[in-house]
Structures are given as C-alpha cells and as structure tokens.
Simulated scan of single mutants.
Amino acid sequence: LEAMPPYQTGGEMIETVSFEKSTWNQLPYKFEAGTPNIAGAIGLAAAIDWFNQQDREALQAHEDALLVHATKQAEAFDGLKIIGTAAKKVSVLSFLLEGAHPADVGMLLDKQGVAVRTGHHCTMPLMDTLGIPGTVRASFSIYNTLDEVDRLFEALEKVKTFL
C-alpha cells in the first residue's frame, strides 16, 4: 500500500503540497479521496425514478415537436444556415448566423438569458471539412417548451440587429 499510488485524488489524502512536490498522507488516508458526490447520486436516482414513470413515446414526441418547430423557424430566419439536416436526428439544432462568429452569437444569446453551446463540439475534423469555425447549438429536451424555442428566435433577431 505504501508503494501503490492512489487511483483518485481529493481532500485529506495529501500531507503536503507545493509547486515542486506533493506527498501523500499516511495510510489509510492516502486512499480516501474525499466525500463522494452523495447528493449527485441521490439526485440521479430520483431522476431515474421520475424518468421510468414517464411515457417514453410521449417524451420522444415532445422532443420531435420542439425540433420541428425550431427547424421551421430556422428555415424562415434570414441569414441563418442550419448545419445538419438529417431526416432522423436528435432534437439538436446546429446553425450559423451569417457574418457572425458562433462564439459572439452565443455570448449575445447568453446576455438575453438563452442558453446554447458554441464551438467545434469535439468535431474539429468535421468543422475543418465543412470550412467553418464551429456552430451554435441549441439542444431541446423533455423539459423545454415551444415558448422557449420561440424565445431563442426572438433573441436571435436582436443578435442579428446588433451584429
């Protein structure tokens, strides 16, 4: 046990820390990486219980309706280009706004209380192949509403006028 390195790190397993060197605490503390995420485990169990009580077909239909609604608005939005138009896809809308960098669009949406992801989304080779710096990605799920999809496009109108 003395020779074996810890497989996890965390509180109380360190005796000393400096920029040059750290030393492990005495046994058994060397292998006690702090308190596990107990609240997270309880929350995950509650979420699984809730999800198992739901009508999964209804949840899927809801997500599909959100994507259809968002796609229709995106197709009608002047200067917006959808990236990824497969017939069957998850409820994610990736897009570019003409003349704007995805990071700028994301920041301006965030300032309006609209959460999106921006960047290459761990697909740098794909973005290079497409010749784009990344995308803005809106993800819709069972907890979203059609009103929130509308809010995204209202906020995009303001972004468009600003940029």
Rank of each mutant, 00 (worst) to 15 (best):
K88P: 15
A47T: 06
L1R: 06
A41E: 09
I14F: 01
H101K: 03
Q8M: 13
L80M: 03
L97P: 01
V68M: 02
G40E: 11
D104H: 07
F140T: 00
G119A: 04
E75C: 14
G79T: 06
S141K: 05
A138W: 14
K72L: 15
D147M: 08
Y143G: 03
H101W: 04
V159E: 03
A100L: 01
K30G: 01
L126E: 05
P125Q: 05
A87K: 15
E20K: 07
T123P: 15
S141T: 06
A76S: 15
G131A: 10
S139D: 08
S18L: 02
W50I: 02
T161P: 05
T23V: 03
A61R: 03
E98Y: 08
T16K: 11
G11W: 02
M107D: 13
L156G: 13
W24P: 00
L96E: 14
C122Y: 04
N52V: 05
K89M: 14
E63C: 14
D110V: 03
A47G: 02
F153T: 00
W24N: 01
E15F: 09
A74P: 14
A46R: 12
F77M: 04
F162P: 01
S139P: 14
K89Q: 13
G131P: 11
A86P: 14
S139N: 12
T35H: 13
D150R: 11
H69T: 12
A70W: 00
Y143L: 13
G84I: 10
G84C: 10
I83Q: 01
M107G: 14
W50K: 05
P5C: 07
Y143I: 13
R56H: 12
G119V: 10
K81G: 05
A115P: 11
F51L: 02
G43Q: 10
G79F: 08
Q54S: 06
L146Q: 08
T123K: 12
E57C: 10
S141V: 07
